[in-house]
Design a protein around this nucleic acid. Structure first.
Lengths: 342, 342
DNA sequence: GACTGGCACTCATTACGCGCGAGTGCCAAC
DNA sequence: GTTGGCACTCGCGCGTAATGAGTGCCAGTC
């Protein structure tokens, strides 16, 4: 059966009221606060149907209705028009991001900004190495058998690793290695690094072979294992707002989940390629067990149309979806622009 | 009046029981669980005195006694013998720290380890720049008007900043700058950097003067402003243990405080020089308003006797002080040893 | 003088009963 | 399909009562 228009209106009204008041909403209050042109009794009928279809439920008999995860889902998919940001918010974003001196700084500012604007937990992934291109690789001799490998990407990210060489090495040899590596990798996307690195080792002349092998191992490790690793978090205090009414009193599993970087990355990194950038995962839809009481709004960001990382926020399923979505989207765009300027 | 021995025993027993059970402890339960050789009535008399002196209090008439902050203070100062670590704990520490590849890695592992062992919030400061010495400074040309300044310290910390130069610069000039900077700063403690850097600018020959001035500005900023900035945090989920019985239900201000790096640094950095390394701040004694319901156990760490940073844990005033103190001390020593090996 | 047993008293916590009222479901009427 | 009416449900708040852990005090004992 096609979804009746008024029933959708009722659902929207319920979601909006519940998000605002945090209390189950009844038929009478609904018709008063929203000017649906019908009587409470009619609304009650609609609500009964909505409940049958699993979009709302009553916490107990003789209480108002509360949206279910499915209800929020429908609300997000069909009902919410995008809420434009206020000028004040736009100004806040600009002011916040303008002063950034550093990639680190950009990420930190962004995550705090997001947490502040949405009043929720914010997560920002550092520009992923695998989706960046190498701008420059530098070898810094530390001792005769140790060099520091510094990699700078076009997104401004700097990664360094100490490499223990199998034998002593001269300054000239370091220069040769540096040049070889830069010729091979300079400008290349890191996703193609593995093949390039193998080529490097094979090309290496006898005396440098051993050193190059050690360097290659570290390079691959950096690219493959640590590739997506870094992520910033802020706003956990916002979980404790609303007097633990959300999350049935137990913040602990959520805080625990948020301490795992792997989980945070899962939240913001876009696994399914073909979607329209912005993703909303509501309650149940979350893969992570401990976050089934929360919703996650996330999106990719990057200079122009390319995506180099993800960011998003996490909060109670009872959240202001239109507002949150608008903010997340806007912040992602601003950050992307910032990276593009670089 | 001198503190009666048995009264101290009573206080110790109260603290221990309260820490274990989280419930006010009465006279009868006390004599049962601890074999003080006296009757409940006697204990009651002692308790009345202890209460007058401000070491314990009753939450309400006809309830047992609970230690006050002053009570915990006395307990920590006078009563608690050091609880040796279990072999299992020692093994855990070693296993955890052994695999570290990186300074970053060391700090991360340490903070997680601390949180896990103490079951509390752990804070670890990165080795402070100002107390480290420069091992090497590297200049990496990014474009003709931009260089990346990379600083490596003897504690393994690597700091990088992008420097915008006033005008284009050649490869030879970069080499000259690199050499000049390394000659001046190599091996020097960073606390003496400011004077050295000024010297650098004055010595710089005409053509390099402008570039050197830009570099010097960034160097000073790195040393002075960012000097102590970095700090790692873990175990916030532990705050939510104990069903919010501690912290009278409101986790929020504490989580908020923990999001401020400045505050975290205050917690673990040793401000007063002359103390015996390990410091315990109990409840009220905390400078930060929002942390008046918590206690902080912190200490300095570093290779050998020198202190390059601080670490510690934060938890409810009702915490296992002897155990926590032992763990913090042990972890600090292990980390110090690890840094010394480098 | 220090310790002990006894006893009256306090008071938070728990349980129970009860009325209130928001909100529902159903039905007959429009 | 919509509406007003009405009986019904049931969580919430509140006052009262019972419970019991724990105390303070006092008189007696070593």
């Amino acid at each position: 059966m096609p979804m009746d228009d008024r029933k959708l209106d009722v659902l929207r009204a319920i979601v909006e009221d519940y998000v605002a008041t945090q209390e189950p909403v009844g038929s009478k209050a609904l018709v008063e606060r929203h000017h649906l042109g019908v009587s409470p009794a009619t609304v009650r009928n609609d609500m009964a149907v909505l409940e049958d279809e699993g979009f709302i439920r009553q916490p107990h008999t003789s209480a108002g209705r509360v949206p279910t995860d499915r209800g929020y889902r429908l609300f997000v998919d069909k009902l919410s028009r995008i809420k434009p940001l206020t000028p004040a918010e736009r100004r806040a974003i600009e002011r916040f991001l303008l002063g950034a001196v550093d990639l680190d700084d950009v990420v930190h500012r962004t995550v705090r900004l997001l947490a502040q604007l949405t009043r929720q937990v914010a997560v920002v992934q550092y520009p992923s190495l695998s989706r960046s291109a190498v701008r420059h690789l530098e070898l810094v001799p530390i001792s005769t058998t140790r060099v520091l490998l510094v990699m700078i990407t076009d997104t401004g990210r700097v990664e360094q690793r100490l490499v223990e060489l199998p034998g002593p090495i001269s300054a000239d040899e370091v220069t040769a290695l540096r040049q070889a590596i830069n010729e091979r990798l300079g400008g290349k996307r890191l996703s193609e690094a593995p093949t390039q690195v193998h080529g490097l080792v094979e090309e290496a002349s006898g005396g440098l072979r051993a050193a190059m092998t050690a360097l290659a191992a570290v390079l691959l490790e950096t690219v493959v294992e640590r590739a997506e690793e870094r992520v910033a978090l802020a706003g956990t205090a916002n979980l404790a707002r609303g007097g633990m009414l959300d999350f049935q009193g137990s913040l602990r599993p959520i805080l625990e989940a948020l301490e795992e970087e792997v989980i945070l990355l899962k939240l913001v990194s876009e696994v399914d390629a073909g979607n329209a950038m912005l993703r909303v995962r509501i309650g149940d839809e979350n893969e992570i067990e401990d976050l089934r009481a929360t919703s996650v709004v996330s999106t990719g960001y990057g200079p122009g149309v390319t995506v180099v990382g993800g960011l998003g926020v996490l909060g109670p399923t009872r959240m202001d979806y239109p507002g949150t979505i608008a903010t997340v989207r806007a912040v992602a765009r601003y950050v992307g622009d910032l990276l593009a300027q670089n």
